[in-house]
Nucleic acid binder design. Structure first.
Lengths: 127, 127
DNA sequence: TAGTAACTACGAAATCCTTCGTTGACACAT
DNA sequence: ATGTGTCAACGAAGGATTTCGTAGTTACTA
């Protein structure tokens, strides 16, 4: 099963989320953030982050004794890739069908609805 | 890594898609459909479908010599679950943020845009 | 300087996913 | 009845993912 450019796994995604929200971090900081919600060993996170560096998902700065990791791609890029992937795997390639489902899985606020409307207007005008 | 109610894997999803579009099918039929686009052995598909029956992703009718498989859940249910899952894993739980990304990964037709607008209107009125 | 704490590196185990070869049963046609 | 083809069942291999123990190194502190 060959994946497109390095689709992150579940555990990798958890780490990416920490790095996205907190910015460049040490293994210790990432472990603290994740172990607050889920029991996990320090070396588990360390190993994962080393693998992610090998894969090119994150970039490691080894200047200090505590290496500092940062994401290689912005959250939006990776999220867009994941969405594209799911569209291809489960929605017959139709982004539209995914959107229609997504709008119904969770209550969306009026503000958010209006934000989506604006984006639709933009997309339409871009024709 | 414990998943919620049986998230289908990549290979399983391919099989589900065949069953969704074709309806209840034998292993032979599913294999024919999949091997048309991707080289794969018959027993590979057989094994996967047996596992899926064990997991409860599909239901097997063994009345005939060629067992007939059908999906346990409708496409929409499974798709909604997959979307919900991705929202939780990669979008900090916000369906809205996934939708905003999804609308930009692929060109959407005017008809589709209008269909989304209608759904937004419905959701708003449901308040 | 000796001891403690924190860090990286390494290897290996456990599980899951995907693949397929082999076997034995069954059905059909010669 | 014999051979040919199709089927389910099973086991096992190979790879990916996740987990963590252990070892060795570096920094800090008493």
């Amino acid at each position: 099963m060959r994946h497109e450019p390095n689709r992150p796994t579940d555990a990798e995604l958890q780490i990416l989320e920490v790095l996205w929200s907190t910015g460049p971090s040490t293994v210790r900081e990432v472990h603290d953030a994740i172990s607050a919600r889920r029991e996990t060993g320090y070396t588990t996170i360390l190993k994962l982050m080393q693998i992610m560096a090998d894969k090119g998902l994150v970039i490691r700065d080894t200047d200090q004794r505590s290496h500092v990791y940062r994401t290689k791609r912005k959250a939006e890029q990776t999220q867009k890739q994941l969405v594209k992937d799911l569209i291809g795997r489960a929605f017959g390639g139709s982004a539209n069908r995914l959107v229609l489902q997504a709008l119904q899985v969770q209550k969306i606020s009026t503000d958010e609805i209006n934000a989506i409307r604006e984006l639709l207007d933009d997309l339409e005008n871009k024709e």
